[in-house]
């Protein structure tokens, strides 16, 4: 498939710019207000949940430039930051959140429809977000001018428009990823993959990181999440998705538990833990091969479901329990073992 590598790199930067502007907007203008938690929850709902439906729309309307449309929405919404505090600024923030969902689907479309049997292009696109989230958070926390985030997104939009041109000239077709074990019922595969994604969303709030106290340490934490996601895709293509997913989730557990106070151990654990992202996306795409964008939307809905419990302080305290995290990781590893096709042999039937 032509243009895949170019598209994954362009979308890495497009995704990075998107998250920079979104998180700077949130942290700078709502992070310390009385509605901070509500705005964060609404942001998550508006940015994650509609992706399934936008995916369905983008599959139906093949010519809809969903990525550039999202970028335009994000830029329009970001203008709200220049308005005085109140309804106008909030409206801008919510338009930006919805635009965020469109941009994500645009990235998924560009990478999944050109990837053939590889998951790495999508994983590289997704990994750009982690770097953007922490950059935006730090810019917001430092109360830097919002013009920085806006300028980054302007550049990101140019990249997304360029990626659209590349996509129009590339060889496109449905992905040929075969990670799900065809002997299992498709509904069971989708439900278990959804569960694993939700657990990843939940655990990203629960991972014990007592060492994380400075801006540089926070940057390292998010950067390792990004590295893990990208590396997970590359290793899955090279050595097999099942081996990569099982090994990374099982190895991550002792590292995360032992690394609560030791930064480097924890960072390796976080990277290993993030590697399962490529596997879950690949499983869902191979369970619904004619609906890759809806499958992508299932992963973001799973992340949203996993994130919601963390908004309740009592639940957050409970999920930070190391024993609880260990049990969840083992359950996820067992679920992945059950629903993933053996490496090399891949789909047995169908």
């Amino acid at each position: 498939m032509g243009g895949t590598k170019k598209l994954s790199i362009l979308w890495f930067f497009g995704h990075f710019a998107l998250e920079v502007v979104c998180f700077q907007f949130y942290v700078k203008y709502f992070g310390s207000t009385e509605t901070a938690a509500l705005m964060a929850l609404l942001y998550d709902i508006l940015a994650f949940f509609p992706q399934f439906f936008i995916g369905a729309l983008a599959e139906r309307l093949e010519r809809l430039p969903v990525g550039p449309l999202g970028a335009a929405m994000v830029l329009v919404g970001a203008l709200g930051a220049f308005c005085p505090a109140g309804v106008l600024r909030m409206t801008g923030f919510f338009v930006l959140s919805l635009g965020n969902a469109f941009v994500h689907v645009g990235g998924a479309k560009a990478t999944l429809f050109t990837c053939g049997d590889k998951i790495a292009p999508s994983a590289i696109f997704v990994s750009g977000g982690s770097f953007g989230v922490i950059t935006g958070k730090l810019l917001g926390a430092a109360d830097s001018s919002f013009a920085i985030g806006f300028a980054v997104m302007l550049a990101g939009s140019a990249i997304i428009f360029l990626a659209q041109r590349v996509l129009e000239n590339a060889d496109t077709g449905y992905p040929d990823i075969k990670m799900a074990d065809k002997r299992r019922d498709t509904a069971v595969v989708i439900l278990l993959a959804f569960f694993v994604v939700s657990v990843r969303g939940l655990m990203s709030y629960g991972i014990p990181t007592a060492w994380n106290r400075t801006a540089l340490q926070s940057f390292c934490l998010f950067a390792m999440m990004g590295v893990g996601k990208g590396l997970g895709g590359i290793l899955s293509d090279k050595f097999g998705a099942k081996k990569t997913a099982l090994a990374s989730s099982l190895i991550s557990l002792p590292l995360l538990v032992a690394g609560a106070d030791i930064m480097w151990v924890s960072l390796v654990g976080v990277a290993m833990f993030s590697m399962t992202m490529a596997a879950t996306l690949g499983i869902l795409v191979s369970a619904a091969p004619r609906h890759p964008l809806m499958a992508y939307g299932v992963t973001t809905t799973g992340l949203l479901v996993g994130t919601i419990p963390a908004f309740y302080p009592a639940v957050k305290r409970f999920i930070s329990n190391v024993g609880f995290l260990a049990v969840l990781t083992l359950v996820c590893a067992a679920a992945l073992y059950y629903i993933m096709a053996p490496d090399g042999k891949r789909a047995e039937k169908g």
């Binding site: 207000t33 009385e34 509605t35 509500l38 705005m39 609404l42 508006l46 929405m73 329009v76 919404g77 109140g86 309804v87 909030m90 409206t91 801008g92 923030f93 919510f94 338009v95 959140s97 919805l98 635009g99």
Partner: peptide
């Protein structure tokens, strides 16, 4: 402020 948030969500949906 909750009222403002609701108005903003509805306005954002229409604009989007």
């Amino acid at each position: 402020s909750l009222g403002q948030v609701l108005v903003a969500v509805i306005a954002a949906f229409f604009l989007a």
